[in-house]
Design a protein around this nucleic acid. Structure first.
Length: 440
DNA sequence: ATCACGGTTTGCA
DNA sequence: CTAACGTGCAAACCGTGAT
């Protein structure tokens, strides 16, 4: 905090924060467009895993009124009518593009929180001598020039306001991609906020919006004028914070970008329903392998594994059966082989023939840092070291030669159950054999 | 009363 | 021809039994 050099002065100036939220426009769609510019200005849809739901849409598709998250089969005809171009999601490509974008953004401030695959907060407090609107325009053009990714920037004195500002920047072309709420007058702000539905506020979901409506709170302005104390009683501490943040109070600090996860999951629906124990085992082994890789990447150990299998809840006529099984391991591990042994025992205990299973998953809970993992009394130091070296070697080979180069026994090669991805583009940036010839 | 706990709900991207 | 509906987190909330 500047201006505090008056020695014994206890009065600290309350610095008005400047938080920016940089959010990519139609992120998945924009990733595809970077590698095929002919897709620009064309209507594009990206499908979720298993080609199940619509999870990203270009502006043209939003204008057609196709909603986020709708099952693909419900809009397939409409999509054909509008000549919409459809892709399966290519997470490898999107993750790599995200890393590039975040790296560039990180150069614009010392404190960055990567909030999601396409969003990042920056703390621009202390940059107030600059024109932050210009500075934000600079961020936009730099990201666009270096990786071809269009982004919008919202600036406010709290994370909640930065989010809201970003929403405004995206909706009103008047703002030219940057909305800085800190340089808008109080009266204009009130008008602006009374035109935005309260559901747009970060932390207010569908249920909370309904509940707020019953109290007569329907716009952002209404929520901003509400009493934080009163709302805390009816909702929770989160709602109190949200109201305070709307009024410019900085309550929710920026967090570390990659805190180790407390829980790791790998779950997936099947391309075709599965009934046999052998096929379920293959799927569960593959998910266990993936989740164990995540575990080692964040240098953690786990003492429990939870597995589940599920029938299709949308098929009301089918008999439903959704069992799960929590397994406590003798001592914390990150060894894929130990985890596989455990989950197979668990799977056998819950499996029943005669059901059409649609989805399965593996979950690791109560994770602890590798160096804190309490080794069990009878643990043999030699086998511990062997296990660590083996896993490290496998991870390195799979990382450099391509994931799946080394597999664990039982994952299967046929994989009849594997999810559908019939319209996937190439991994342009991460797989040498998928780079288009023209780029070589 | 209060706590720890586990399962459920909510929200987010 | 028909049927076809994601994944991965965190945290609050809430009922329960134990103390």
């Amino acid at each position: 905090m500047g201006g505090c050099s008056l020695g014994d002065s206890q009065v600290m100036a309350v610095v008005n924060r400047s938080i920016a939220l940089i959010d990519c426009n139609n992120f998945y769609v924009s990733c595809e467009r970077v590698f095929d510019p002919s897709l620009k200005r064309k209507p594009i849809i990206i499908l979720s895993n298993n080609d199940g739901c619509v999870i990203a849409r270009s502006q043209e598709v939003k204008d057609f009124g196709i909603k986020m998250g709708v099952p693909w089969f419900k809009v397939q005809k409409l999509a054909r009518y509008y000549k919409i171009i459809v892709f399966s999601s290519n997470y490898t490509l999107y993750a790599d593009m995200s890393n590039r974008v975040m790296k560039i953004i990180s150069e614009f401030a010392s404190n960055q929180e990567v909030y999601s695959i396409d969003e990042s907060f920056l703390d621009l407090t202390g940059f107030n001598h600059l024109n932050l609107t210009d500075y934000s325009q600079n961020i936009r053009s730099t990201v666009n020039r270096l990786v071809g990714m269009p982004v919008c920037v919202g600036v406010g004195s709290s994370k909640t306001l930065a989010k809201l500002a970003n929403h405004i920047a995206k909706k009103c072309s008047l703002f030219d991609g940057v909305c800085n709420l800190n340089e808008i007058t109080r009266n204009t702000l009130d008008v602006l906020f009374s035109e935005i539905k309260v559901g747009e506020v970060w932390g207010v979901g569908r249920r909370t919006e309904e509940k707020l409506a019953k109290l007569g709170v329907t716009t952002v302005f209404d929520l901003k004028q509400s009493s934080p104390q009163a709302l805390r009683k009816q909702f929770s501490i989160l709602m109190e914070r949200t109201v305070r943040e709307l009024n410019g109070e900085f309550c929710i600090p920026l967090e570390k970008s990659n805190p180790p996860k407390k829980q790791l999951v790998c779950s997936r629906g099947f391309g075709n329903p599965v009934s046999s124990l052998s096929e379920l085992s293959e799927a569960i082994i593959m998910y266990t392998t993936r989740v164990a890789e995540k575990l080692r990447r964040q240098r953690s150990m786990t003492a429990t594994v939870y597995i589940f299998i599920q029938t299709n809840p949308f098929k009301k006529k089918d008999q439903q059966y959704n069992p799960g099984c929590l397994i406590h391991l003798a001592s914390p591990t990150n060894d894929t082989r130990i985890l596989i042994r455990a989950v197979l025992v668990g799977l056998k205990s819950i499996y029943k023939p005669g059901f059409k299973y649609k989805k399965a998953g593996v979950m690791l809970e109560g994770l602890l840092p590798f160096n804190q993992a309490q080794k069990s009394l009878f643990d043999d130091k030699g086998s511990q070291a062997y296990s660590e070296n083996l896993m490290q070697a496998i991870d390195t080979i799979n990382k450099t030669m391509g994931s799946g180069t080394i597999k664990f026994l039982g994952e299967g090669l046929e994989k009849q159950w594997e999810a559908k991805a019939e319209r996937k583009t190439r991994c342009y940036t991460t797989r040498i054999n998928e780079i288009p010839v023209a780029y070589c």
